[in-house]
Computed example of a mutant assay.
Amino acid sequence: MGSVTTQKHANGLEYVDVNTELCQARIFMQGAQIDQFTPKGKPPLLWVSSADDYQPGNGIRGGIPVCWPWFGTHENPEYPQHGFARNKIWSLESVNMRNQVVDLVFTLPKSEFEQQYWPHNTEVKVLFTLSETLSVSIVNTNLGDTHVNLTQALHSYFPIGDIHQLKATGFSHSKYIEFGQGPITQSQDSVEFDRETDRVYTELAPLQTLHTPHGTILVSRENSQSAVLWNPWIDKSVRLSRFKSDDYLTMVCLEAANVLEDNVKLAPGESHTLTTHIAWQ
């Protein structure tokens, strides 16, 4: 029999613990952030830094932080990086289990919206479907009477064993911007890593593959033509908070996104759903 229970971390953060015949997972109310997902009989599919101490108010350095309602640095430099949703307390709206498949819906309460940053009348939910695979969605609905534009990302951290042996594929015929340069057209299908990598891709195919020493991870997207591929490498690792200096060796981020020209444009009453699907091949 499977179970879905609400528990509390030693540092006070509440989370939902999922244990079924298909998987084990943990999702925190803060940020609606999943930090553990392990299909039964297989290795974990998400990475978290051992330097993270799960303090309230800090987004967890790993798992899948929700970047909303903007990704990266806002045009106003006083606004928080990656929006404000990842540090807010979300509400668990519903739980449904059928044949050991668990569906969870989290909603960001209106009281948690930062009106000085986001004066729009919108609703945002994060949906999880947990089985042998993991699906995560951000659902935006414009409840107001004016158009709304936003950018967003599911900032997924993957355990890849050894960055020197990682090959990421599925990038041919896409474009990317990196360190302010671009757009650069990528003709080759694969990316390998020997330096800091911070690419914001557009015109990207819906499926990428991470070939690691421990197996192959499939990462796909719906309603998204953009994604971010990131590894901080050596110098930046030293500067990152809640991140060990050698953590770059064992992780990579491949983030489903709606950024740059792929931003979300919502007419009054309109909804949009960004989804990522993650699985071992």
Rank of each mutant, 00 (worst) to 15 (best):
Y54M: 14
F158W: 03
E75K: 14
K236C: 05
S131T: 01
K110V: 03
Q81A: 06
E93P: 01
A32C: 15
V148M: 09
N142W: 09
S156K: 07
L130K: 09
N231L: 07
H173R: 12
S3G: 00
T38P: 05
V238L: 13
G12I: 12
G215Y: 00
T197Q: 11
G2T: 15
Y248C: 10
F193D: 01
M1Q: 13
N76Y: 09
T197F: 03
H74Y: 11
S94Y: 02
E78R: 09
K265H: 15
Q55R: 14
S135K: 15
A32W: 08
P69W: 10
V238I: 14
F171K: 07
T38K: 13
S241N: 14
G215S: 02
P206M: 01
T73Q: 15
N231E: 10
N263W: 01
D103S: 15
S245D: 15
T169V: 07
Q181Y: 12
V126A: 11
P56T: 11
D194M: 06
W47D: 04
S172F: 03
V101S: 09
L127D: 06
P80F: 05
T151L: 02
T129I: 10
T151F: 09
K8P: 01
V48N: 02
Q186I: 11
C23D: 06
V139S: 11
E123C: 12
Y54N: 08
D247G: 02
P268C: 11
Q225V: 03
V66T: 14
N11P: 00
P109V: 08
S3I: 02
S241D: 12
E270Y: 05
A85R: 09
H9R: 04
D52G: 04
W230T: 05
Q165R: 11
L166I: 06
Q33Y: 08
P69S: 11
L127H: 13
G180V: 08
P183T: 09
V18D: 03
P56W: 10
H82S: 03
H82F: 09
Y157T: 05
T151H: 09
A267Y: 04
V95S: 11
G59L: 06
T185I: 13
L104M: 04
R86G: 07
I138L: 15
S245N: 15
T276P: 00
